[in-house]
């Protein structure tokens, strides 16, 4: 199968059962995306598929041939700098997923997508909005309090 990851084309000979996450980690050596729950519940495996954030653990690699995939290794975004500046992590395991998710989320906000807590005319990046929009990413260290301002400040850049 053919995968396009971080702008590089790869020709892989893998079983159809291989998830995108396993293809990235085990076959391409891109271990930034993490296998947390492996069931789409924790967000540690988040990557960008054609620019949209998705759970790579629930996607079959064979179904995404020729779709541009961006992993944390291919991300260059103010969110990364602001996570470091705000201490937006402790152990770091969820961080690649948090950052890919935040990059995708900020793009959703820029396109005017609402969230479950959006109100007409209200700030789409209030604390409540960021928390709702990022609820697909869990952090067992509980570094959420520092991620929220990190994401908001990245959005301003």
């Amino acid at each position: 199968m053919n995968l396009v990851v971080n702008g590089v084309e790869h020709d892989l000979d893998v079983d159809p059962r291989t998830t995108l996450l396993d293809a990235l980690r085990e076959h391409l050596g891109l271990t930034g995306a993490k296998k947390g729950c492996d069931h789409g519940q924790c967000g540690a495996c988040t990557v960008l598929l054609d620019g949209r954030r998705v759970n790579s653990c629930l996607i079959l690699a064979i179904a995404q041939q020729d779709t541009p995939i961006t992993t944390i290794e291919g991300v260059d975004h103010p969110v990364q700098r602001e996570f470091a500046a705000h201490d937006g992590f402790q152990c770091g395991y969820c961080t690649p997923g948090q950052i890919c998710s935040a990059v995708g989320m900020l793009d959703e906000v820029s396109r005017g997508w609402p969230s479950a807590v959006s109100r007409d005319g209200a700030d789409p990046l209030s604390d409540a909005e960021i928390r709702e929009r990022m609820s697909g990413n869990l952090c067992r260290c509980g570094a959420y309090a520092n991620m929220v301002p990190a994401i908001r400040e990245a959005a301003a850049q």
Partner: peptide, 15 residues
């Protein structure tokens, strides 16, 4: 719209 946004996560809704 509200029902959709109440469901799952941003990542899951994208797929």
């Amino acid at each position: 719209s509200q029902a959709l946004l109440a469901g799952a996560s941003g990542q899951l809704r994208n797929m």
